[in-house]
Simulated scan of single mutants.
Amino acid sequence: MEQLFWERAVSIVFVFFAIRFPRAVAAKPAVPALFSFGDSILDTGNNNNLQTMSKCNFPPYGRDFPGGVPTGRFCNGKNPTDLIASALGVKETVPAYLSTTLTPQDLITGVSFASGGSGLDDLTSQVQGVITTPAQLANFKEYIGKLTAVVGQQRASEILANSIFLVSAGNNDVAFTYSFLLATTRPFPVYVSYLISLAKNFYKNLYDLGVRKVWVLSTLPLGCLPGGRTTGGGPLRFCAELANMEAQTFNGQLSAAVDSLRASLPNYDIRFVDVYTPFLSIINNPQASGFTDAGEACCGTAPFGGVSGLCNLLEICPNPSTYIFWDFAHPTERAYQLVVNSILQKMNMNTSITN
Rank of each mutant, 00 (worst) to 15 (best):
L4G: 02
I12E: 06
F14T: 05
P22D: 05
P22V: 08
A24W: 11
A26D: 13
K28S: 13
A30W: 02
V31E: 03
S36F: 02
F37C: 10
D39L: 04
N47Q: 00
N49K: 00
N49H: 00
L50V: 02
Q51I: 05
M53A: 08
C56S: 14
N57Q: 06
F58G: 01
P60I: 09
R63E: 09
V69G: 00
G72R: 01
R73I: 03
F74I: 08
N76D: 15
K78Y: 07
P80S: 03
P80D: 06
L83C: 00
K91V: 14
E92Q: 15
T93G: 01
L98P: 00
L107H: 12
G110A: 13
V111M: 12
V111R: 15
A114P: 03
S115K: 00
G116Y: 02
G116E: 02
G116H: 04
G117E: 00
D121A: 00
L123V: 01
Q126W: 02
V127L: 14
T133C: 06
K141W: 06
K146P: 08
L147R: 11
V150Q: 13
V150L: 03
G152A: 09
L160T: 12
L160D: 12
L166F: 00
V167N: 04
T177R: 04
L182E: 10
L182S: 05
T184W: 06
P187D: 00
F188T: 10
F188H: 04
P189G: 01
V190R: 07
L206H: 01
D208G: 13
W215T: 01
L217V: 02
T219S: 01
G223E: 05
P226I: 04
G232Q: 11
G233F: 01
G234Y: 06
P235A: 15
L236Q: 12
C239P: 02
C239V: 03
E241F: 04
Q248T: 14
A257Y: 10
D269H: 13
R271Y: 09
D274N: 15
L280Q: 14
Q287V: 12
T292N: 15
A294R: 15
G295I: 07
C298R: 13
F304S: 10
G306S: 08
S308E: 10
G309Q: 06
L314E: 02
E315R: 09
I316N: 12
C317N: 12
N319S: 12
N319R: 13
F325C: 07
D327N: 09
F328G: 01
A329G: 12
H330F: 11
P331V: 13
T332M: 05
R334W: 08
V340T: 10
N341R: 04
I343D: 04
L344C: 05
M347R: 13
N350M: 09
S352H: 09
T354I: 05
